[in-house]
Lab assay of single mutants.
Amino acid sequence: PKDEAKKKVKEAIKRGDEETAKRIAKKYNLDWDDAKREADEER
């Protein structure tokens, strides 16, 4: 599900692992900028 994928993307971003985050986002066709902004807001 997309929500689960987005959570994984945000967790990867918070760990500083943007490569993984981008790969997950691409795989699930998520909006990378959107997920990154959300992760930054939660930090």
Rank of each mutant, 00 (worst) to 15 (best):
residue 3 D to H: 10
residue 20 T to R: 06
residue 40 D to M: 12
residue 36 K to Y: 10
residue 34 D to W: 07
residue 13 I to H: 01
residue 30 L to K: 02
residue 36 K to I: 13
residue 28 Y to K: 15
residue 40 D to C: 13
residue 31 D to A: 03
residue 25 A to N: 01
residue 10 K to Y: 10
residue 9 V to S: 01
residue 37 R to W: 08
residue 32 W to N: 01
residue 17 D to V: 00
residue 15 R to M: 10
residue 30 L to D: 05
residue 42 E to Q: 08
residue 22 K to S: 04
residue 11 E to A: 10
residue 5 A to H: 08
residue 31 D to S: 09
residue 17 D to K: 02
residue 19 E to Q: 07
residue 12 A to T: 02
residue 32 W to I: 08
residue 30 L to Y: 05
residue 30 L to N: 02
residue 37 R to Y: 07
residue 18 E to P: 06
residue 34 D to M: 11
residue 5 A to W: 14
residue 12 A to L: 15
residue 3 D to M: 11
residue 16 G to L: 03
residue 43 R to Y: 13
residue 6 K to A: 08
residue 28 Y to A: 15
residue 21 A to P: 00
residue 25 A to W: 00
residue 27 K to T: 07
residue 30 L to C: 15
residue 36 K to M: 12
residue 3 D to T: 10
residue 27 K to I: 12
residue 40 D to A: 10
residue 29 N to Y: 06
residue 43 R to W: 13
residue 13 I to Q: 02
residue 39 A to M: 09
residue 10 K to H: 10
residue 3 D to A: 13
residue 30 L to P: 04
residue 36 K to V: 13
residue 28 Y to L: 06
residue 37 R to S: 09
residue 20 T to L: 14
residue 13 I to N: 01
residue 38 E to W: 07
residue 31 D to I: 04
residue 19 E to R: 09
residue 32 W to S: 01
residue 41 E to F: 10
residue 18 E to D: 08
residue 5 A to K: 03
residue 21 A to W: 00
residue 15 R to K: 09
residue 33 D to N: 09
residue 18 E to A: 05
residue 19 E to G: 05
residue 13 I to A: 01
residue 19 E to F: 05
residue 27 K to L: 14
residue 8 K to S: 08
residue 17 D to I: 01
residue 16 G to Q: 02
residue 41 E to S: 11
residue 11 E to H: 04
residue 36 K to W: 13
residue 17 D to A: 03
residue 3 D to Y: 12
residue 11 E to K: 02
residue 26 K to R: 10
residue 41 E to V: 09
residue 21 A to I: 00
residue 23 R to M: 09
residue 27 K to W: 07
residue 17 D to M: 04
residue 26 K to H: 08
residue 23 R to Q: 12
residue 20 T to W: 09
residue 4 E to S: 09
residue 5 A to L: 08
residue 41 E to Q: 12
residue 11 E to Y: 00
residue 2 K to Y: 13
residue 4 E to L: 12
residue 19 E to H: 06
residue 34 D to V: 11
residue 14 K to Q: 13
residue 24 I to A: 00
residue 13 I to M: 09
residue 31 D to H: 03
residue 42 E to P: 07
residue 8 K to Q: 13
residue 23 R to S: 10
residue 7 K to M: 11
residue 28 Y to E: 15
residue 21 A to K: 01
residue 32 W to Q: 01
residue 8 K to L: 14
residue 12 A to I: 03
residue 6 K to I: 13
residue 43 R to I: 14
residue 9 V to H: 01
residue 8 K to H: 10
residue 8 K to C: 15
residue 5 A to Q: 06
residue 19 E to C: 11
residue 31 D to V: 03
residue 6 K to N: 04
residue 36 K to L: 14
residue 37 R to N: 09
residue 33 D to S: 06
residue 15 R to H: 08
residue 3 D to G: 09
residue 38 E to D: 10
residue 1 P to T: 14
residue 18 E to V: 13
residue 9 V to I: 14
residue 22 K to Y: 02
residue 38 E to P: 03
residue 19 E to T: 09
residue 13 I to S: 01
residue 40 D to N: 10
residue 27 K to N: 07
residue 34 D to C: 12
residue 1 P to S: 15
residue 38 E to K: 04
residue 35 A to D: 02
residue 34 D to S: 11
residue 1 P to R: 13
residue 31 D to R: 00
residue 34 D to K: 09
residue 5 A to Y: 11
residue 13 I to D: 01
residue 6 K to D: 02
residue 10 K to S: 08
residue 30 L to E: 05
residue 15 R to A: 13
residue 22 K to L: 08
residue 15 R to I: 08
residue 42 E to G: 06
residue 25 A to R: 00
residue 3 D to N: 11
residue 1 P to I: 14
residue 33 D to M: 08
residue 5 A to V: 08
residue 32 W to E: 02
residue 26 K to T: 08
residue 14 K to A: 12
residue 36 K to R: 08
residue 1 P to L: 14
residue 34 D to G: 05
residue 11 E to S: 05
residue 12 A to C: 12
residue 19 E to S: 07
residue 23 R to W: 02
residue 17 D to R: 02
residue 43 R to P: 11
residue 33 D to W: 06
residue 24 I to D: 02
residue 14 K to W: 15
residue 1 P to W: 14
residue 16 G to K: 02
residue 23 R to G: 05
residue 36 K to A: 07
residue 43 R to D: 11
residue 21 A to F: 00
residue 19 E to W: 05
residue 28 Y to M: 05
residue 7 K to R: 14
residue 29 N to W: 05
residue 41 E to K: 11
residue 9 V to Q: 00
residue 15 R to T: 05
residue 27 K to Q: 14
residue 26 K to V: 07
residue 5 A to N: 04
residue 25 A to E: 03
residue 13 I to L: 13
residue 15 R to Y: 06
residue 26 K to Q: 12
residue 23 R to N: 09
residue 5 A to R: 03
residue 5 A to I: 10
residue 37 R to M: 10
residue 30 L to T: 03
residue 33 D to E: 14
